[in-house]
């Protein structure tokens, strides 16, 4: 009698085990990693098809597609980790075009030696975020690079969604007179990361705002307000995003510093590190440009949603062939809010 148990494979050691090069080789070890770590956590019918791609039904409308690489360091931070960040970030990129996000794909680049326990924690977090958002991860890919050629794990996610005909929130639609609304406190994600990196301790730590915004956006659309443009101010912060919109729409903008919602902890940490919260990344906030007559209605609809309780009207759009974004300071002076120069915070998302 042979001692070989048919079909027995020793399970992955999710406590002590680490990623090795065989996990990316296409062989049995990779199949096991996918089965026991990825499919078990992210499981859904499409992923269960076990093909190189996924075959899904497609509702009517125009297709929206977006992709985003995530290289954040540290991988785990107050309020989230690279897993939920990679899900929420791509959902938001699809949703700000007015689309209903439907499916996600995820590509993992793992570094040899990365702890399987950490990987499991990250994939658990992705699974939770995807389930909460109702947007499944339907296909994926795993590659392993040699030690030193990566930094633990990088995750690229791609999302698709559909947008109804007639809906158009692209960045070139801002018009003079329009109002500018931000959905809540700015700079929270970037400062959560920076505070962690620089070991700045606060009694209550700054928590990343990472969140999927598609339901907030649905509520905003349901308000009936004439929304011109939506965008999530991630890297480069609110300042850079508004400059992008100003250039696309060929308009100028005027902000009011005193109207900007900034949590006291974020303001203090920025002060400490010499950063301007206008340039610090957000991962769960959006900017809306809205017709002036509908600004109050939109603001009320946003404040009724838990993700935008602190939404604020921060400025307005005007004609300006220089496409300057300007701001009246709390002091009463005026200044430009320029494009971000150089790299303020590397590897923030």
């Amino acid at each position: 009698m042979s001692g070989v148990r048919q079909g027995y494979v020793r399970p992955l050691d999710l406590k002590q085990g680490v990623v090795d090069l065989t996990h990316g080789s296409g062989g049995r070890a990779m199949a096991q990693l996918i089965d026991e770590l990825f499919a078990r956590r992210l499981g859904n019918d499409y992923l269960g098809q076990r093909n190189d791609g996924a075959l899904m039904p497609m509702p009517a409308g125009r297709l929206v597609m977006s992709t985003d690489g995530h290289v954040v360091s540290p991988l785990f931070f107050p309020g989230g980790d690279i897993g939920c960040l990679s899900v929420n970030g791509t959902i938001n990129d699809v949703a700000v075009l007015g689309a209903t996000p439907l499916y996600l794909a995820a590509g993992f680049i793992l570094e040899e030696g990365f702890a399987l326990a950490d990987l499991a924690r990250i994939v658990d977090s992705m699974a939770r975020a995807a389930a909460d958002a109702g947007v499944p991860v339907v296909t994926g890919d795993t590659k392993v690079v040699q030690k030193g050629a990566g930094d633990g794990v990088y995750i690229t996610t791609t999302g698709v969604g559909v947008v109804a005909d007639g809906e158009d929130f692209s960045g070139d639609r801002a018009q003079p007179g329009d109002r500018i609304i931000v959905s809540g406190g700015i700079g929270e994600h970037g400062m959560a990361i920076m505070a962690q990196r620089e070991s700045i301790g606060f009694a209550a730590p700054i928590v990343s705002d990472t969140a999927a915004l598609h339901r907030l956006i649905a509520a905003m659309r349901a308000s009936g307000a004439a929304i011109r443009t939506l965008r999530d101010p991630t890297r480069g912060g609110v300042a850079t995003t508004l400059n992008e919109i100003a250039r696309q729409s060929r308009v100028g903008m005027m902000l009011h510093e005193s109207a900007l919602p900034v949590q006291p902890e974020v303001a203090a940490a920025c002060e400490f590190l010499g950063l301007d919260p206008l340039y610090v990344a957000n991962e769960g906030k959006l900017l809306a440009i809205v017709a002036p007559a509908d600004a109050d209605r939109l603001l009320a609809a946003m404040r009724a949603h838990p993700l935008a309780r602190d939404a604020a009207l921060i400025g307005s759009v005007h004609a300006d062939h220089h496409h300057f974004v300007q701001m009246t300071s709390s002091l009463g002076g005026r200044r430009i809010v320029d494009w971000l120069t150089g790299e303020q915070l590397p590897r923030i998302c």
């Binding site: 100028g252 005007h318 004609a319 300006d320 220089h322 300057f324 200044r335 430009i336 320029d338 120069t341």
Partner: peptide, 17 residues
């Protein structure tokens, strides 16, 4: 130069409002 370029150059141009 960076301070003027980044914060103040609107003053060199006639800009609304």
């Amino acid at each position: 130069c960076a301070a003027h370029y980044t914060f103040g150059r609107f003053a060199d141009a006639a800009v609304a409002p």
